[in-house]
Design a protein around this nucleic acid. Structure first.
Lengths: 183, 183
DNA sequence: CACTATATGGAGGATTCCTCCAGTTAACAA
DNA sequence: TTGTTAACTGGAGGAATCCTCCATATAGTG
């Protein structure tokens, strides 16, 4: 990709995050293009659909949330680390319209490069957390990374109304209790 | 409401379910109106927004899924009844575009009459299941109906891709194990 | 510097949304 | 049955949004 194209692409993503945060993901895409100082055609070339733009906008943030797993595992026992990490993740999703949707599409598909990269990051993070728990004998051995990813995605999708943040935190705790149950 | 209005309303809902099932919830609403044999204005009068229509379309099905809890509880121990009921629910949501979204809006709000009714049905069903488990000493006592509703909503929202049905079934089983854990 | 593949912007046709209002009809009383 | 009225209906059409096309501009290369 040409350097100018890369810059415009980044500008579009930045603008998209801002606009989505302020006014939701249903906003006309012209607004995003204007905010990015870019023609509407440029936006559509980089992101053919609204969904592609939403996914693109949050891929970076999802990646950042995946860092720091090592630190958590160093400071906390595996079960608490998993709980804390998932709660932190869901906390970041709440109030960011579209981010849960982006997470879901990243979890279920590896269609394009960016999605595949994020998918790998999320799965790697969850795998570290899961392995730590299994190695410590805290988690049952039949739980898969897919299970954790599905739970994370589901809980993220269900936040978005007042009070649902607390509820999501509770759900995560109950779920991880299930992961621990000697079943 | 006048009798003719009630009939048209029902026709719109039937058409909406059909069209949503065939072609997703993003379909132009003109299509729904045409299929229902109704003017577009009539559709908009009964359902001012697309979301209202989606919710309305699935309220009935959600209600039906809530029946039969008694029978489950008669045939199965409370934990298996809860698992079976939730799995059955999520199974019905899969492949019905928009139904998960309808469930979520019904769970989080009681804005209008239809939503309030469905909300009550879902909560009543879950309450029976929860109480049965708590009474039997199988479930921890600090789990709330809200928790179960949130989990059901979250798991429903995360289905919708091949293989996610099985995963949802697994998630429900793990979650209910968490509900049982003696915390 | 010249050349070319690549990227750009915005006009505008196509689609979809959603409101308005003139005409129709169900419900009810006499 | 008939008259009255409040409620309901359909669809035209203005407004908003989508998304493609293509003439122009520019980065990258030798």
């Amino acid at each position: 990709m040409r350097a100018d194209a890369r810059a415009k692409r980044a500008a579009v993503l930045t603008a998209a995050v801002d606009v989505f945060t302020e006014r939701g993901v249903e906003i006309p895409l012209d607004e995003v293009a204007r905010r990015a100082g870019v023609g509407i055609a440029t936006l559509y070339r980089h992101f053919p659909t609204r969904e592609a733009l939403i996914t693109g906008a949050y891929v970076q943030q999802i990646g950042m949330l995946c860092d720091g797993v090592e630190k958590l595992l160093a400071d906390l026992p595996p079960d608490e680390a998993l709980i804390t990490w998932m709660q932190n993740f869901v906390g970041h999703v709440a109030g960011r319209p579209g981010m849960a949707q982006a997470l879901k599409s990243v979890v279920v598909s590896t269609d394009h490069e960016a999605a595949a990269l994020s998918h790998a990051k999320v799965y790697t993070a969850l795998e570290e957390l899961l392995d730590a728990g299994v190695d410590a004998g805290l988690f049952r051995a039949d739980v898969t990374v897919d299970d954790l990813a599905g739970a994370l995605s589901g809980f993220s999708l269900s936040v978005g109304s007042p009070g649902s943040q607390d509820r999501a935190d509770r759900l995560i705790r109950i779920f991880v209790d299930g992961v621990k149950a000697t079943g």
